[in-house]
Design a protein around this nucleic acid. Structure first.
Length: 499
DNA sequence: CTGGGGACGGGGCCC
DNA sequence: GGGGCCCCGTCCCCA
């Protein structure tokens, strides 16, 4: 990438997001421009809808701010009050503080409440961090939210230029620059990312103003990496009585940077322990944990759409040099993987592996419903997604005794939403819309479309596309929906009233 | 609908 | 810790 290249340039201002957040926080504290008040058991918290929609999947959907939603019933400009009694006052205050400072400051005793609140409101990174500290696995509780954020698959995104609402960058610009030779993999230019907010909750402008990011940045800094590791926190606010046993060395948001005192003692959600070799790093954009040293830059190119490695022969570009290397075999005619049983030769080792199954006749992948067997697992998955095996009566296995796969059940909602939750959320948004038009609305007790209730894991196609790459067999290892209802007994009260 | 090839992203291992 | 290389799982496309 050369600065002299023709085209638009993007000049990153890495401090912009910090300053913006800081000013928003000042406005919140002084009540300026606040258009939403959150209450919890008598406490009141003036806030901004856009900020809440930025950090919370729940508010995003409630306000119709989630990209891909019609938004037609989104909330208007009227100031409103949301009563969130299901979130404790302390937890709500902590989550609000996080929303405006990217720092979560909580007492260890309140960790679980914050976790619950984060789950309810769909603040994934906070929930992950709390679970890390509590030493809990949250797959069954929060994956649906995470996957909801990733609904359009990466491939769909790649090929159709679909941009997720949660993605701060536009993959589409990839074709607007044309280096002529692969650049160093060591320091890819990530000029697109600095404007995105921390914790993967980009300020609204960062997620929508893709045009300003088109072209090549002249200062190819790796701010995303810095932001992912240099987020300040306030150790003085952290209770010191919490041990670090729950950290387990796993990287939580922002905790992969040694922070002096922050490394020791205290519940340092915003800080963390020193990274070990091979310590996973968390993507600041999608919050995904990337394992392996040096793999984060590689992963980040899936967000930026940058393809620094170009084939000198045909011009096709790749995000990784190892992929380019394999691609070059097409031009050189090299097919290093040859079948011992036939003249077939392949570019990829796994192609040979697939091919060998043809000779062996092995069909180890059997549909649990119709018991049709396939040589390839992806073909089995496709078979099941295509609903071509709906003969549920044919349950007798031909061989083996694999239990029926819960993921094979039909998925009525393409977004993986619980059937009831779709209407519940729609109802809540409708009520909000009414409220914004001046119609007093109150929703108490029932039909609360809180995220934890709304999302359920499914083996549906959309869900699978969302996180398939990163979670092999996600569709078959997903816990049943019933396990997500452990807190269902708790009455969740959500009230919208005109202020 | 299925078989097969190719592309893509993530993780492990090693240097 | 970063990067190369390889393998794997998944998805898409085409016949």
């Amino acid at each position: 990438m050369s600065p002299g290249e023709d085209g638009l340039i993007g000049i990153p201002f890495p401090e912009h997001s910090n300053e913006l957040l800081s000013r928003l926080n000042a406005q919140r504290r002084s009540g300026l421009l606040c258009d939403l008040t959150l209450t919890s058991r008598g406490t009141r918290h003036p806030t901004h809808r856009s900020v809440m929609a930025g950090v919370s999947l729940y508010f995003r959907r409630l306000f119709g701010a989630e990209e891909g939603e019609d938004g037609g019933e989104g909330v208007g400009d009227n100031c409103s009050v949301c009563q969130l009694d299901c979130v404790s006052p302390d937890a709500l205050a902590a989550l609000l503080e996080f929303a405006y400072t990217a720092t979560l400051t909580i007492r260890s005793s309140g960790m679980r409440e914050v976790l619950k609140g984060a789950q309810l409101l769909g603040i994934q990174c906070v929930a992950d961090a709390c679970r890390d500290i509590l030493g809990e696995s949250g797959d069954d509780l929060t994956d649906p939210v995470e996957e909801a954020e990733q609904l359009p698959s990466r491939r769909k995104q790649d090929r159709c230029s679909v941009v997720r609402a949660s993605s701060p960058v536009r993959p589409a610009w990839r074709n607007s620059h044309h280096e002529t030779a692969p650049v160093s993999e060591e320091t890819p230019e990530y000029g697109l990312l600095p404007t995105q907010g921390r914790e993967g909750h980009p300020p609204a402008a960062a997620g929508q103003d893709g045009a300003t990011h088109r072209g090549m940045p002249i200062n190819g800094s790796s701010h995303w990496l810095q932001e992912s590791t240099l987020i300040p926190y306030r150790p003085e606010d952290i209770p010191s009585d919490e041990d670090e046993s729950g950290l387990k060395g796993r990287v939580t948001p922002h905790n992969n940077q040694p922070h002096g005192e922050g490394e020791r003692g205290g519940v340092t959600v915003g800080g963390g322990r020193k990274r070990k070799s091979q310590t996973p790093q968390q993507c600041p954009v999608c919050q995904k944990i990337i394992h392996g040293a040096g793999k984060l830059p590689r992963h980040m190119r899936t967000h930026t759409g940058e393809k620094p490695f170009q084939c000198p022969t045909c011009g096709v570009r790749f995000t990784r040099n190892d992929k380019l290397k394999i691609h070059m075999r097409k031009h050189t005619g090299e097919r290093p993987y040859s079948c011992p049983s036939c003249p077939a030769r392949f570019l990829h080792s796994y192609d040979l592996k697939n091919h060998l199954s043809l000779h062996s006749g092995d069909r180890p992948f059997e549909c649990p419903l119709c018991h049709k067997a396939f040589a390839r697992e992806d073909h089995l998955q496709r078979h099941r997604k295509g609903h071509s095996c709906l003969e549920l009566r044919t349950r007798r296995p031909r061989h083996g005794n694999r239990p029926p796969d819960p993921a094979s059940s039909p998925t009525p909602d393409p977004f993986g939403l619980h059937p009831d939750s779709m209407s519940a959320l729609a109802a809540a948004r409708h009520l909000y819309a009414q409220e914004s038009r001046g119609v007093p609305v109150q929703l108490l007790g029932a039909g609360v479309p809180l995220p934890e209730m709304l999302w359920r894991p499914t083996g549906g196609e959309m869900m699978n596309k969302g996180g398939g790459d990163s979670s092999p067999h996600a569709s078959v290892t997903r816990k049943p929906w019933e396990e997500d209802e452990e807190e269902e007994e708790e009455e969740k009260v959500f009230k919208v009233e005109r202020e």
